[in-house]
Design a protein around this nucleic acid. Structure first.
Lengths: 190, 190
DNA sequence: CCGCATCCTCATGGATACTG
DNA sequence: CAGTATCCATGAGGATGCGG
């Protein structure tokens, strides 16, 4: 809980609740799937354990996340309302997403969030992305971690290549594709 | 400049640049109009002068704002890209915008930002809002501070009443209207 | 192990005073 | 007016400990 700005303004109110360091990154993690303390911690290298505990407590106290009996944290409806602002910030932050820098950490679920922000909701086919040994699926309605039963195509590339193509900053031909290239291009290239 | 999260993720990159305390509120001020140091400071009660100077320096160094020769700060194109995320956060933060609390500060330009986020872009008429002695205009294409030449209606009410109506949480009848009530309702009530 | 709480150190933020 | 300098309070970051 930071010090409140004391302003009668929606932005200030929002920042009063999610403006603290790490908080929005925790929400990002839970946007992909419910997770436990250890799972969140693993995704946020450098966070102090007391900070993570404190942020989770604040988020729960504000009604933005809920903790089930088995210890997993999940977004509440109010918390899920942050999906739109987060997607917009992901896109805006894309201007600094060039080559992945040395030592910069990366988790496949971040690619899931970025693709959810980048791709249109209705997609003409289902493809699998293989990135750093992790499988991400994109089907007609959702993007998530894990394989598909019968993908139209399988795309293999590092995260920055996939993001570059999806953002229209790199040619589709820079990807390695098995299966239906047309569908893969339509899904990723629009 | 805060310590970077060191994550290859658009959200983390965004927060590396606008995640510091006060930073997004400074951008909010410049979203309404270019402003000078003293004007920004006046809108942010409680900010330390060194912090404001530091934030402005960082924002300028990141290319998000530009400072002209006369000392006014204005958003760059990159900085204006924050309009969408900020509008989203304004709307999301609206859940904590009930009655204005005692001692909570308020500036009319925040209402401008909130109405830009709340109202549809095409509006069926032009109205003036009078709130706390300040005049805000809403015409067919824009919302801003200042009067109109020939408003279809003039609405007088405290900020929370206007926000409540625009957000659909309060009845239009709670507003004081002079002039064309139908147009005022259509502009504010949709 | 997992889920924290505690302790310590140091960077950052906040308030005030002061200056080109 | 537009900041800088200073000092103190607070929060972040890292290591460790500890109960379930």
């Amino acid at each position: 809980m930071p010090k409140t700005y004391g302003q009668y303004c929606g932005l200030a109110k929002a920042l009063d609740h999610i403006g603290d360091r790490w908080t929005l990154l925790i929400v990002r993690e839970l946007l992909v799937a419910p997770r436990r303390y250890s799972g969140i911690r693993e995704a946020l290298p450098g966070i102090a354990t007391n900070l993570l505990a404190d942020r989770l407590r604040c988020l729960e106290g504000d009604g933005l996340i809920e903790r089930s009996t088995d210890g997993t944290y999940a977004l509440s409806d109010a918390g899920r309302g942050l999906e739109t602002p987060i997607h917009d910030l992901v896109l805006w932050g894309g201007r600094w997403m060039g080559e992945r820098a040395e030592g910069e950490t990366f988790r496949p679920q971040w690619l899931v969030v970025a693709l959810q922000a980048l791709l249109p909701r209705r997609r003409p086919g289902a493809i699998e992305l293989h990135v750093d040994g992790t499988v991400i699926h994109i089907d007609r309605t959702r993007v998530g971690v894990g394989p598909l039963d019968a993908p139209d195509a399988v795309v293999e590339a590092p995260a920055e290549r996939i993001l570059g193509v999806a953002a229209g900053r790199a040619p589709f031909s820079s990807l390695t594709v098995r299966g239906d290239r047309r569908i893969a291009a339509a899904v990723l290239g629009s």
